[in-house]
Design a protein around this nucleic acid. Structure first.
Lengths: 139, 139
DNA sequence: GTGATTGCAAATCTTTTGCACTAAA
DNA sequence: TTTAGTGCAAAAGATTTGCAATCAC
């Protein structure tokens, strides 16, 4: 059982990322980072904020998600057209995507071995390698 | 130099997929399949159709792309939020995604070795494994 | 003919934007 | 203060839908 922590951790994390720890960002950061590894859409996070009686506008949720992503606090995962998921696990890892339910599930980086990767095209640098294993319940 | 073929190939392909070879579908199939491996968005294909003086509505392009995809003539590739690419190469292979230009590039299946894959969750079947190598021109 | 297909315009959905207001430093 | 951040409502895109007109068989 981990004791309920003061928000100073998160405040420091936001500051370290160069983001002012505003009430909204702090509340969203709590929802995101105090509940283990999560995969959320903007809508879902906004819904959770509303449920937690944290008044935040959807626009602010989008802003925060993108700011968190570009400062490395989150990672964006794209598996469906027209919807982005944000992953609180920013370590090297891959995903199962459950097509039936729309759920994402982490796969530890060491559970996938990419033993041969092609060289990047000339002048290009590999930014990231995404591996998405799409699964469903038979046909 | 490959001789210009009659459309009977494509007509047969459409019929085999259970799709009536209508003027529109045939024209789109020609644009898609008579130009090598391609990665196109609906907008792009629609633009090509217009340029080729083939009057097709955007809605019909979307219909055709989805019908082609669900019958295995095309494969949908999702790399950017809010835009779908359709790949005429339906063999096993992976992709480079050029973040700077938005271009997709095929990687032959044998150029990536996935030597260890996790078991799918209970009751689930692996539908497909997507590997996307995101590259850009450094910073 | 008859059912599949098309085209158009409107609707939907997610995400972005502009700008006045508010709050953090 | 001063500048970053927020909220709202409107705008922007991509995609979808409903339905009458049209086409393939």
């Amino acid at each position: 059982m981990v004791a309920q922590r003061p928000y100073s951790d998160l405040i420091d994390r936001l500051k370290a990322a160069g983001l002012r720890p505003t009430r909204q960002r702090l509340a969203l950061a709590r929802l995101l980072f105090e509940n283990g590894d999560r995969h959320l859409t903007a809508e879902q996070l906004h819904g959770e904020a509303m449920a937690a009686r944290v008044p935040v506008s959807l626009a602010t949720v989008y802003n925060a998600l993108h700011q968190f992503t570009s400062t490395g606090l989150l990672r964006e995962v794209i598996v469906e057209p027209g919807r982005s998921y944000f992953d609180t696990n920013v370590t090297d890892h891959y995903h199962f995507f459950h097509e039936d339910s729309g759920q994402l599930e982490d796969i530890a980086g060491e559970d996938v071995r990419l033993s041969a990767l092609p060289l990047p095209p000339k002048g290009k640098r590999i930014r990231r390698v995404d591996v998405i294993i799409r699964v469903n319940c038979g046909d």
